[in-house]
Structure formats: C-alpha cells, structure tokens
Design a protein around this nucleic acid. Sequence first.
DNA 1: CGTATTATTGACTCCATTCAAAGATAGTGG
DNA 2: CCACTATCTTTGAATGGAGTCAATAATACG
Lengths: 236, 236
Amino acid sequence: MSKHDIQVTCNNCSLDKICFPRGLTREEISNISQVIQAKKTLHRGDCLFRQGDDFRGILAIKSGSAKLVAVDHHGNEHILKILLPGELLGFDGLYDETYQYSAIALETLSFCELPAQSMNDLFQNKPALTRELFRHGSEQIKKDKDFIVLSKRPAEERLAHFLIDLSDRMKRRGFSCSEFTLSLTRQEIGNHLNLAMETVSRLLKKFHQQELIVVNSQCIELKNIPELRAIFAHSE
Amino acid sequence: MSKHDIQVTCNNCSLDKICFPRGLTREEISNISQVIQAKKTLHRGDCLFRQGDDFRGILAIKSGSAKLVAVDHHGNEHILKILLPGELLGFDGLYDETYQYSAIALETLSFCELPAQSMNDLFQNKPALTRELFRHGSEQIKKDKDFIVLSKRPAEERLAHFLIDLSDRMKRRGFSCSEFTLSLTRQEIGNHLNLAMETVSRLLKKFHQQELIVVNSQCIELKNIPELRAIFAHSE
DNA sequence: CGTATTATTGACTCCATTCAAAGATAGTGG
DNA sequence: CCACTATCTTTGAATGGAGTCAATAATACG
C-alpha cells in the first residue's frame, strides 16, 4: 500500500460522532489518531478476542457487526450483545487484564484498536480523552442495566425492543432504519433474548401477520416502526 | 467534633482492599484521602442519589447497605443490585452527568464521596488512580454481564446464587459468611431476581426443609454452603 | 392493642418451553 | 447445474415452571 493512499485515521472517520472521537475537539482527535491503530479485516466466525485472552486494548468496530459471547461453566454460550460500527468493546478486560468474553465477527468486519500501553499514556497526558473513555464505559454500564430491566418483560416486548433498538442504532450510523440484514440465526436471537428459537420464529410470524415487519431470510424490513415501538413502550 | 478525633480517611480504613484504595500504594492512598470526603450518615429509605440528579461524583458505601433502583417508563421499580460496604456506585452518572438510577439506604448507612471536580484533577495528575478507577468500572461491567447470564437460569438457582453471592461478599468484608441480615422484603428479593414474592417464599421454605438455610425474619443463616453453591454450580 | 404491612400457603392459569416432525435454505462436490 | 447433505426454520401438540389470585397467618409498628 502506497503512502499516498488515504490513511484510516479518526480524523477522516465517518463514525466520529459515535466512536473514540466522540465529544473531542479536532486537536484531541488528532491526538488519539496517533495511537489508535486500524487493524486488518476479519470474516464471519473470526474472533476479535477470546474469553481469557490477555487484555490488548479497547477495540472499536469500523465496519460490519459482531457478537459478544460469554461461555458459562457448563459450556453454554450466551450472546450478551450485538456490536455495530462505532461501538467500543473490551472494557470488561480492564479489571484483571484478561478479556472476560469473546467477540466474534458476524460478517466481514474491520476494527480499530486503542492499545493497552497507549491507555496508560493517555491517563498520564490526555485528561479530556480519559474522561471521554470513562463516558464510554459509563454508557455500557447503563446499557447493560437497561437490558436487565428489559429482560423482565414478556417475550413479545423483548423481541420488539430488540428490533427497534437495532433500527435506532443503524439510523445513528447513517444506515437505513427500516431495512437491515441481521446475521443471526433464530437460535442466536433467542439465545440473546433468552427465548427458545421456536418462540422467536412464532413471534416474527405474528409481527409479519400484523404487517409490522417483513422477514426475508436474514433481511428484516420494519414496516411500522411506531407500532413496533408501542409494543414495549405502551404496554401497561 | 474536635480536631483530635480520628479522622475518617482512606489511610486508616478497613475496606482498603476493596474500596477506592484497592491496588494503590501507601502514597497513592494518601493522595486520594485528600480528595475523598466522608459524608454524613443516612437512614433506611434515604437516598444517596436519585435517578436524574446531577452527577456529584463516585460514592462508596462505608457501612450499612443500599439498593440500586431503576424506575422504568411505567413507573415500576427494579432493584438492580444490592450494595455492601466498600462497593462503589455512581459510574452510571458519568455518561451524561446525571445519575441514571437511585441509590437507597436499606439500613443506617455511611458513605464516602469522590467529588466530580476531583475526578478531573485525578485524570490530570494521578494516572495510577485513574487506572484503578477504570478497573472498578470494568468490574461493574463484568458483574452486570454475569447477572445477565445468571438471569437465564431457573428460579431455584437464581435464589441460591443470590444467597451465596451475598455470603461471599460478606466474607471478603470480614463479616460472617454464614449468618447475616438482609434488609429486604420477599417482594424486594423477588423484584431483584425477577421472581414473584410467593416464589421466593416457597423456595426459601424448600431450602429450609432441605436444611440448607434457617430464616428468621430478616436474619438468614446458611447451614450448608457447599450444597447451596452446588445448586447453581452443578446443575446439568 | 389494634392496624398495617409482610409472609405463607393452596388452587388455578398461562406464557413460553420442549418435543417431534416436516419444510426451507444454503453450501458442496460430482 | 443438479443432487445431496447439513443446517436452519416453521409448525403443532403437550408439558411445566413460575405467576396470579385469594385467603389466612405472622410480624412490625404507632
């Protein structure tokens, strides 16, 4: 690759409102650009990191999507979250310098990395970046707790929320909010939402009959977003 | 209070292996001691902070216990976690400078505070403390995710885990691991574990019949910790 | 001591799971 | 390109774990 190619840096990244550069000044973005490394591309099934790996740093999805997976002591897998472009992962690895979960590409994916060594440097010299990194961590804490609250709701609401949440997140990233591909099997959707695969299938059919969605294999089209949103927002 | 009274500082705090001072050198502990403020005592039902309050800082329970509560958009309360001495809270407030949940004392309680202003100073001048604060945040992310994984298990395992988890945490704080008071109603335990109050009552009775526990109003005695642990550890 | 809150217990119900079987889809190699 | 296989999805029927409802009992509290 020639030096005249456009470098992948935070300075010219379209995810600057979401990812590492969020909330930073132009100058601060230049600062992190120097330490954040663009990494090579992965394919479906490849791991960004594995549960138990030594902590290398905080990662950010640049393109594609991934799943964060925990394996419990019975060997069962649990899909904790779906990761979209601009989302950070690896905060769980700071605690004991070991990633606590595995991050697995759902499709062709590229990602960037804030290396662990650079973080210590950041803590030393860049308080604004440190503060922003804390805000990213804080956001994850909030999202996890919101997921816990949501998980008490019935199956239909959980699935409706899952679709709307994806839709909202796609929209903020400049993708269509009404049509997107979801590289997950029914099994995986069910695993994530704590539902049997069969329940997911039945509910998707129900939503389809209500003309809320159209499902075409992995492509999901949301036909009536307000009504879908109402399923979990207005439920008594 | 006279100036000759022993000051409450991190230097002489018995929770130094758990709380803010964790992992810090003697000198670093002296540093944080200067910014961490001991606050006045609260009583059952009092709030450490309320959902929506402006972020004041990260708090640490010094004595007593509290519950972290979310109110959803239907007005329903959800007990997200129980907080014991030495545990930090408020990380959720960093994201948008607003506490996302309410922290409510379950009994007479005292707490310390790392004020928000001091945090910026910390980021600037104390990288070791900043790193340690990140580790505390990371730990919370891991705990929340573990709770999500656990919440997929059946009622009996969830309750057994709840009791063992409390027991383990009490032990690390120098309290008895086999006998402790739990200032929660059946309703609240059920709320936290996503169980009906009646189910909690029935399961506690079952554990009692199996001679695993003895319940005396709010006082819980664990008679057979290994067996209780096996309920969620060895389940198929 | 009486009242309000909290806990227990039983009977019944229901949401979601499990089991089972058939159908669709994707991927592979001849 | 089609046949073959593996994987994934759909659908129905039966089951069950935990919830709800309701009535009683125990405890805490002013």
